[in-house]
C-alpha cells in the first residue's frame, strides 16, 4: 500500500509546476491582482491595531506602493480606484509619514497612464499633510506647486508658497518664486523651476523620475515652439507653409532635431502651421490648465 502511494505522490509532484505553467500561459505570468479593501476608514484600521499603528501604516504604505505599481504596469483598467483610500488610511495611521503625502499626491495627480489623473484629490492629501505637519515647509511647498502645476491657480499657489517661506528652515527661493507667480501669473519658466526643485529634492526613484519626465516635456515643448517659429519664418519667406518639417531643414531655417526628447518625431499640423509633441510620444500630455506648461 505504501509503495503505490509513494509512486502516486512522485507522479503528482511534477504536475504542480506543469499546471502552474499552463495557468501562466493562459493568464500571463504577471497579472494585476484584484485588489480589495475591506476597511475604508483609517480610524477603523487604527482601532484594530492598538499600539501597532506605525507597523500598520507601513503595511498600508507598502500596499499603496504595490497597488500603484500593479495598476500602472499590469492593469488594463488603470482606474487607481483604491489609491485614495489607501493613502488616506496610511496617513491616518501615521500622520507623520511625510513621504506618503508627497508620493500619494503625485500618484493621484499625474495624468493617466502615469497616475490617477485626480489632482483635486492629490491636493486634498497634501492639505491633510499640512494640517498634520504644520511645521513642514516642504509639504506646503508641494501644495503650492500642485496648485499651480495641476490646477493652474497661480494666485493660490503664490499664497501657499508665501506661507511655506514663513516656516523655520524654509528655502530662500520660495518667496522669490511666489512673487514671480504673482507678477507674471505663472509661465513655463515657473513650471520648469518647480519641477527642477522637485527633481533636486527627490530621492532616487519614482518621484525623481516623474520630475525628470516633466522637465523633458517642458524642454520638448520649448523645442516644438522654436520649430513653430521656424515654420512662421518659412511662411513669410516662401508665402506658404512647409508641407513637411523636413523642408525646414532643407531651407536652412531649422538645424536642430525634429523629435522630442524621447526621440519621437513631432506632430506637425500643416493647416495651422503648429508643431507639438506627438500623441504617440510618452511625453505627450494635454494642454496645461494655465500658461504654466
Amino acid at each position: 500500500m505504501t509503495r503505490p502511494l509513494a509512486v502516486l505522490l512522485l507522479l503528482l509532484v511534477p504536475v504542480v509546476p506543469w499546471s502552474q505553467s499552463k495557468i501562466d500561459e493562459r493568464a500571463g505570468i504577471f497579472r494585476a491582482q484584484e485588489e480589495v479593501l475591506y476597511l475604508w476608514s483609517g480610524e477603523q484600521v487604527r482601532n484594530l491595531f492598538p499600539g501597532f499603528e506605525d507597523l500598520a501604516a507601513d503595511v498600508y504604505w507598502l500596499r499603496t506602493v504595490q497597488y500603484f505599481g500593479g495598476q500602472r504596469v499590469y492593469s488594463r483598467k488603470k482606474d487607481f480606484a483604491l489609491l485614495r483610500p489607501l493613502v488616506e488610511i496610511t496617513t491616518t495611521l501615521d500622520p507623520r509619514l511625510e513621504i506618503a503625502y508627497r508620493y500619494g499626491a503625485v500618484f493621484l495627480s499625474e495624468l493617466p497612464p502615469t497616475g490617477a489623473g485626480r489632482p483635486h484629490e492629490g491636493i486634498e492629501i497634501l492639505e491633510k499633510g499640512t494640517r498634520a505637519m504644520p511645521e513642514s515647509w516642504r509639504l506646503r511647498q508641494y501644495l503650492g506647486f500642485f496648485y499651480f502645476l495641476y490646477l493652474g491657480d497661480a494666485r493660490r499657489a503664490a499664497a501657499v508658497l508665501e506661507e511655506a517661506a514663513e516656516l523655520p528652515g524654509a528655502a530662500f527661493w520660495l518667496r522669490t518664486l511666489a512673487a514671480d507667480l504673482l507678477a507674471r501669473g505663472g509661465d513655463r519658466a515657473a513650471s520648469r523651476q518647480m519641477w527642477q526643485r522637485m527633481f533636486d529634492q527627490s530621492e532616487e526613484g519614482i518621484l525623481r523620475e516623474n520630475a525628470r519626465v516633466q522637465l523633458a516635456i517642458l524642454d520638448s515643448r520649448d523645442r516644438a515652439d522654436q520649430i513653430t517659429e521656424a515654420v512662421q519664418k518659412f511662411e513669410r519667406r516662401h508665402g506658404r507653409r512647409p508641407h513637411r518639417l523636413e523642408e525646414l531643414r532643407r531651407s536652412g531655417l531649422w538645424r536642430g532635431p525634429l523629435e522630442d526628447l524621447n526621440g519621437v518625431p513631432f506632430h506637425y499640423d500643416a493647416s495651422r502651421g503648429r508643431v507639438s509633441i506627438s500623441r504617440e510620444s510618452p511625453l505627450w500630455r494635454p494642454e496645461p490648465p494655465a500658461a504654466g506648461g
Partner: peptide
C-alpha cells in the same frame, strides 16, 4: 525586504517592525 519596497522608508520600516515584534 519590506523596507526595500517602501520607497526610501527602509530604516523606519525596519525600526517599526523590530519594535512591534518585541512588543507583540
Amino acid at each position: 525586504l519590506l523596507g526595500q519596497l517602501s520607497i526610501r522608508q527602509d530604516e523606519k520600516v525596519l525600526k517599526d517592525i523590530g519594535l512591534a515584534a518585541m512588543d507583540f
